[in-house]
Amino acid sequence: MIKLNPKLSQKFSYTLLCFAAILAIAPVILMVFIIIKNGASAISWEFLSSMPKSGMCVGGILPAILGTLSIVSCAIVVTLPVGVCAAIYLNEYAKDNMLTRIIKLAIVNLAGVPSVVYGLFGLGIFVMFLKLGVSIIAGALTLSIMELPVIITTARSSLGSVPYSFREASLSLGVSRWQTIRHVVLPNAIPGILTGAILSIARISGETAPILFTAAAFYVPHLPRSIFDQVMALPYHLYIISTQIPNMPKNIIYGTALVLLMMVLTMSCIAIFARIYFRKRRKW
């Protein structure tokens, strides 16, 4: 075998790595570009603000947008406090014992459960067992359990980034543990926790499988009225019109995909920029 000049081999390998990075990122940018290019023409105020008509071939996607927003906001309202408390327990109170190890293992595994299995679970427990029916609340609860590990993990890392010395300073003044957490640790961890929450909202807005049997409906002639209503949801709507309805006008499908994509990407961008901003002006 010929031994390559190390300098040359470095140059070659770097090119290869660069090529791999392009291969990883470029197609996704291309996908986004295709959707924007084909979907932009469908976007109009009417498309965003009216009901679908004539078997969804004309009209807008308002009920789907509102449905997704209501499911997602219910989910985050449930999951955020529980997740933050769990993170506080793990980061501030938990000792290094068996229970803590089991909790960590449980979080890791919750994070890995396939989304469709969450859908099954939601169907079993919320729709059937608790008799909530196929409804916003059943879907939201399903999504909130699915998001729990993500919220816990991000909240925990933002709590962990608050220097230990702040806790010591507060505790040494005779302030109790909970008061220290409440008035010193939490205020400084809030930006990180909120960034994590926004990223979670973005992620669950695009989830389809968990709401498939718990909340989503093919078509609902009215806007969501209570949390016990079945609703249309944007990702499910996209799935339906792109696979189940033949001869669907292409620009409506692209338009729906664009709205969903923009919703998700805008929220993610906000979260990412917020994180950069808070990191820069962090006081310690």
Binding site: F166, S170, S172, L173, G174, V175, H183
Partner: peptide, 22 residues
């Protein structure tokens, strides 16, 4: 402590922090 550890808040709040909490 060996290193000064002001809490990340104003001078005023640093001093009133503990008396308020307690």
């Amino acid at each position: 402590f060996a290193m000064p550890i002001p809490l990340p808040m104003s001078i005023y709040d640093n001093i009133t922090y503990a008396p308020k909490r307690l």
